[in-house]
């Protein structure tokens, strides 16, 4: 479904990524783990078009998307829930969700009716968001904002979701809740690339995982294999 082939990318003249390749098969959850500054978020940004890879290919559903602008890539079926959640603070929770479905809703009128099934789905998954539908997203707690960010990505009915650090800055009990949600989504057959610092939780939910170090993929394998890998064990699962 999503394949990254040897991409280089970075900011200005400094290259952060050198030759990153990974594959996310349809209906699987793939984890991308590694230390701070290893290039996980940069990889995500290079895939979704927030950043232009200087080399290599990104293939979404058989189509090369590297070099396209982010809004175009979103229309092709990729939903990127960015690091730090980035919900639209001055807009209501429901407006945030509606904008998640921007790619397939009418621009002027009747969008609410058309989005209703997707809204209901997200509200079933996160009843909390329904309670707070009219509240401004900026006033939600961190955990609620994370649910909103995930819900917003789901609204797009994407082929692939990129989920960047959903546990960032959240209390442990909320982190558990987030991972619970990810497991539910996995059961529904969603295709997900997950970036996480909590390597242990990420490996529990993932079908396959990549470990990044200094801008490259250092190790890859199934979670079972990685859990037996001494290097990974020492560095990330200690």
């Amino acid at each position: 479904m999503l394949a990254v082939e040897g991409i280089n990318a970075g900011y200005g003249t400094s290259e952060v990524l050198s030759g990153v390749s990974l594959i996310v098969k349809s209906g699987t959850v793939v984890a991308l783990i590694g230390a701070n500054g290893a290039g996980k978020t940069t990889t995500m940004r290079a895939i979704s078009g927030s950043l232009r890879p200087s080399k290599g290919k990104v293939i979404l559903d058989g189509r090369e998307i590297q070099g396209l602008i982010a809004s175009r890539i979103a229309h092709l079926g990729l939903a990127h829930s960015p690091e730090g959640r980035k919900v639209f603070g001055p807009l209501s929770v429901e407006d945030n969700l509606l904008l998640g479905a921007y790619t397939h809703l009418p621009r002027f009128f009747g969008f609410l009716a058309k989005a209703q099934p997707d809204l209901d789905r997200v509200y079933t998954l996160f009843p909390r968001l329904k309670e707070r539908a009219r509240q401004l997203a900026g006033t939600l707690s961190g955990g609620e904002q994370q649910m909103l960010a995930i819900g917003r990505a789901l609204m797009a009915r994407p082929k692939v979701i990129l989920l960047d650090e959903p546990s960032m800055g959240l209390a442990p009990v909320i982190v558990q809740e987030v991972f619970h949600t990810i497991r539910r989504l996995k059961a529904e057959g969603i295709t997900l690339l997950l970036v996480e610092q909590f390597a242990k939780s990420a490996l529990e939910v993932a079908d396959y995982a990549y470990v990044m170090e200094r801008g490259r993929i250092a190790v890859e394998g199934t979670p079972e294999a990685l859990s037996r890998n001494e290097r990974v064990l020492a560095a990330y699962l200690g």
Partner: peptide, 18 residues
Amino acid sequence: KAFEAVSADRDAAELMGI
């Protein structure tokens, strides 16, 4: 609403396809 979204967070709005 997309207009408001761009004013709130341009990069995030782009990720929504705006």
